[in-house]
Design a protein around this nucleic acid. Structure first.
Lengths: 344, 344
DNA sequence: CTGAAAGCGCTTACAG
DNA sequence: CTGAAAGCGCTTACAG
């Protein structure tokens, strides 16, 4: 019985590699130990019918004794395995990433996909991470910000879906469109009597973001003369510093539209330290719709992204690309939505 | 040339299964299309030496034409593949989860592990998710809260590491110990003149949490007579409601120690709506050390968890269990640390 | 520089 | 209820 397992079995400790000096037990080792064939081990381990209770137990005991765990590769090769999604974000510490990831993970679970999460933010090893990820998943989804460009080229054979890659991209992916929500926000601000709005953009002075331009235009279209200021980076700290300057002026603004929620939080902080009441003295709004905006006081008015819808489109694209479709409908758009809360 | 591929090749559309009606191309299909052997395809696809430039290009073109992507199972079976961690959390929307996940993902990347993320919070499918995850990873890490108990039993063959499973657990894992940090917080509050502290615990009235008990004891030990109140759930909303009642009393508390940061945020919100200034009128502290506490105004004093250290221990345990070690040192402890910010 | 052989660990028919 | 055979898709030696 089980002769072949005898030949290559654990009685041969040299042919190892693992730190423990002992190679992992295979189905053949268990079969040998229990005195049955490998098929019987499969039946026992996978709770399949057609095996006696005694045999099952004997096999299970042998498996436990040998710390046997089926190889996911061996099994996957024959069963096909669950499809796997690789989700790459540029910085998991940015609250945007986990909210996106949460939505994708949920949707993926519903569709029977697993998702591997990778944070590319750590410098240096980006290429290695990508290679390793591509070898493990069926489709890569990237929410990459500035990293996106390089990746479009490197993507190689594994299909790549880009999230919010910007207007220029022709890559399959999901793009965000804040235009309508910005109009709604401008209309709201005008309706409540805003006179001197400021748009706090993120990018460098000479390259105002599309989002910032749209905010300016929407306000101007309603007869206001908004001022445009820039933070050197889209962090709460930078935003707070700029806001602190702006609200110290004689002609104090009565509204600040921030590039995103994180920056809006920085603005709120600056207002508090300046002794200003939000929204009575000044109104503040952000973009993204992060959960964090509901946890602060005052709660943050924002242009929210429907992450669940982004996730829905993402999985649809993943399924299509995974099946080898390279055809139409591979670019989706999700619109922001105005969510009025306390801050504006 | 490539006879065998011809026999089972794509010229046989019936034997399919995929929605597109065409099975995925294998290395043999590419070999046939390029008129070479499968080894040559391997060399071209994997950028290996020992192949002429022309051949490489021809193979690559054939691969592209057939949308060939190597099977991760076929490859993994022979190369072994990267080790894979399955991280299961009870709710990704709770800011604690992503911070933990971020730390684990980073540490894992450093160690060459991939991590698959699963949110068990969605009712019903928990068992299916577990099965599917166990089949895909080498080690499962669970940050499960109340779910932990059931899982210890179900864990089956795949090693399971439990995070913050509580004092009762003898399972391999990383536990958190706030005791020392609670002492530091109590000492600080006394030093700045706190007289009437309130401990805002999460659990039901009849079962005060260990954390809440420790807070009470630490304050009492310093001559104070803290009051203990409970929120029915550890959400900002519930905490806010309870806090609103407490601070309305005649003998208003001058400090509230919340069960965690999220609840502390709710307390901050209640204070703001009541017109109280933090920390001048009342001090507020939480537990966890979430990033969100640095983004609110006032910034939140907290007992912080060093997520990076939790992640470090977790990976060490994962490596040990993955190698089949079942010995000593499989329980680790990480202590909280007092982080003084504006709110206290 | 290229190819024929062997084998990674498992499951799925098929015989008994 | 149990086992012998075939094969999933790939890479790693080994020959030429």
């Amino acid at each position: 019985m089980a002769e072949s397992a005898q030949l290559t079995g654990p009685g041969d400790p040299e042919r190892s590699g693992s730190p423990a000096g002992r190679r992992r037990a295979t189905i053949l080792d268990v079969a040998a130990a229990a005195g049955v064939s490998r098929q019987t081990v499969t039946r026992a381990v996978n709770d399949m019918p057609g095996i006696s209770a005694e045999t099952r137990q004997r096999v299970l005991e042998a498996a436990t004794a040998l710390a046997y765990r089926p190889s996911r590769f061996g099994r996957g090769l024959v069963t096909g395995g669950d499809p796997q999604l690789g989700l790459v974000v540029s910085d998991l510490r940015n609250p945007y990433s986990p909210e996106l990831a949460a939505a994708v993970v949920r949707r993926a679970a519903d569709e029977g996909w697993s998702v591997s999460l990778v944070d590319i933010g750590l410098a240096g090893s980006a290429d290695r991470l990508l290679r390793s990820l591509q070898a493990q998943v069926d489709v890569v989804v990237g929410y990459l910000g500035e990293w996106a460009l390089g990746w479009e080229r490197r993507s190689g054979a594994t299909p790549l879906i880009l999230l919010d890659a910007g207007e220029g991209s022709e890559h399959p992916g999901v793009n965000l469109d804040p235009a309508a929500a910005i109009e709604d926000l401008a209309a709201h601000l005008v309706a409540v009597g805003t006179r001197r709005p400021v748009v706090l953009d993120a990018s460098a002075p000479h390259e105002t973001s599309g989002r910032g331009l749209a905010m300016m235009a929407a306000l101007e279209r309603r007869g206001l003369a908004p001022e445009l200021v820039h933070a050197s980076a889209s962090t709460p700290e930078h935003a707070s510093a700029v806001a602190a300057q702006v609200i110290r002026r004689a002609a104090r603004p009565d509204a600040i539209l921030a590039f995103n929620d994180l920056m809006a939080l920085g603005v709120l902080s600056a207002c508090r330290h300046a002794g200003l009441h939000v929204p009575d003295d000044i109104r503040v709004a952000g973009v993204d719709g992060l959960t964090i905006g509901t946890l602060v006081a005052p709660t943050l008015t924002t242009l929210a992204v429907d992450f669940d819808e982004v996730a829905r489109h993402t999985l649809e694209l993943a399924v299509a690309l995974g099946d080898g479709d390279t055809d139409a409908g591979l670019q989706r758009v999700v619109s922001h939505r105005l969510v009025l809360r306390e801050s504006a």
